[in-house]
Design a protein around this nucleic acid. Structure first.
Length: 281
DNA sequence: CACCATGTTCCTTG
DNA sequence: CCAAGGAACATGGT
C-alpha cells in the first residue's frame, strides 16, 4: 500500500496509538529488514524505548523514540516496500505468516508484516537525507519543479519516480498525475513548457491530496486476516466504494474523459498507463 | 508453466 | 556527469 498518500494515512492512524507506548520486547523474524542495523543492536536500542511520535517523509515513516531510562532521543525508520504493512493488534493475535518484526507493547503488539520483505525497519535514518522536497509543502514550487526537470532528458514519467526530485510519488500516482495534467508520459522532462510544468505541479498536488482525503474516509483497523490496506482503489463517496484511479491498471478501458481505450506501456521496466488521446506528445 | 506486482539499489554499458 | 537497461531482493496472484 505504499506511496505518499497511503503512508500519510498510516502515519496518522498510528500516531495516537503509539505515542507514549513503551516497547517491552522485540522479536526479529527477518533480520534482513533491519539492514544495515544488526538484530542484537536493534533489540538493544528498542527494548524499553518509548514512542514519542510518528511522522512521514516521502514514503518513509519516522518513529521518534526515547531511549530507555534516559532523555536521549533517536529515530526508527520504516519503509513499506511494495507489500509491507504496519499495524497494532492485541497481544493475543497470532502473527501473520510473513511477520518481519514484532514489538510487544503490553496489551498490544506492533506488527510489521511484509510478504516480500522489500521494506525496512531500521535505526539507519540516512536515506531520508537524499529525498527531494515534500510535494504538499511550500518547499515544492513550480519553479523548483521546472529547474529539476530542465536537468534531464529522461521521459517525464521516469523522472517523477526519482525520489531526489520530489519525495513520495510512485508508479501509480506518476501515471495519475500525468493524466490529470494532460501530458504524455513519454515527453522529455526538459522539454515541458512553463505552463505545462505548472499544470503538472498542480496535478501532482491534487492527485496526492485527493488520495489522502479518500483514504481518510476508510477505517484502518488492520487485522491479520482482514487487510484493508488497499485504499488505492476505494472511496466511500456516496456510501459506495467507487474506483478512484483514473488510468492506473485500466488498460483497454475507456478514458473517463474521451472514451478512447487507455493504454499500457513499459518505461524503465515499469508499467505506465495513459490515454493516447488526452495525453499527446 | 508464464507473466505481473504499490519500491529501492546496484551494476554494467554507452 | 547522464542515460538506459537489467538484475537483485522474495513472495503471491492470475
Amino acid at each position: 500500500m505504499p506511496e505518499l498518500p497511503e503512508v500519510e494515512i498510516l502515519v496518522r492512524h498510528l500516531r495516537p496509538l503509539l505515542a507514549g507506548r513503551t516497547i517491552r520486547e522485540v522479536h526479529v523474524q527477518r533480520p534482513a529488514v533491519l539492514d544495515p542495523t544488526t538484530a542484537p543492536r536493534f533489540k538493544m536500542a528498542l527494548r524499553g524505548a518509548t514512542f514519542l511520535g510518528v511522522t512521514r517523509r516521502g514514503k518513509y515513516l519516522l518513529f521518534e523514540m526515547r531511549a530507555p531510562g534516559s532523555p536521549r532521543r533517536f529515530m526508527l525508520l520504516g519503509h513499506l516496500g511494495m507489500t509491507g504493512r504496519m499495524y497494532l493488534a492485541r497481544k493475543s493475535e497470532p502473527w501473520p505468516k510473513h511477520a518481519a518484526v514484532v514489538l510487544e507493547l503490553g496489551a498490544n503488539q506492533f506488527i510489521y508484516d511484509d510478504p516480500r520483505y522489500f521494506g525496512r525497519l531500521t535505526l539507519d535514518a540516512s536515506p531520508v537525507a537524499k529525498l527531494g522536497p515534500e510535494p504538499l509543502t511550500a518547499q515544492f514550487t513550480p519553479g523548483l519543479l521546472a529547474r529539476e526537470l530542465k536537468r534531464s532528458r529522461q521521459p517525464v514519467k521516469v523522472k517523477l519516480l526519482d525520489q531526489s526530485l520530489v519525495a513520495g510519488i510512485g508508479n501509480i500516482y506518476a501515471s495519475e498525475a500525468l493524466f490529470r495534467a494532460g501530458l504524455s508520459p513519454r515527453r522529455a522532462a526538459n522539454r515541458l513548457s512553463a505552463p505545462q510544468v505548472e499544470k503538472l505541479w498542480q496535478a501532482i498536488r491534487k492527485v496526492l491530496t485527493e488520495a489522502i482525503d479518500c483514504g481518510s474516509t476508510i477505517p484502518l483497523n488492520f487485522q491479520p486476516h482482514r487487510s484493508n490496506g488497499l485504499f488505492y482503489y476505494g472511496s466511500t463517496q456516496g456510501g459506495f466504494y467507487t474506483e478512484r484511479l483514473r488510468v492506473y491498471d485500466r488498460a483497454a478501458q475507456p478514458c473517463g474523459r474521451c472514451q478512447t481505450p487507455l493504454k499500457r506501456m513499459i518505461q524503465a521496466a515499469r508499467s505506465t498507463f495513459y490515454c493516447p488521446h488526452c495525453q499527446k506528445k
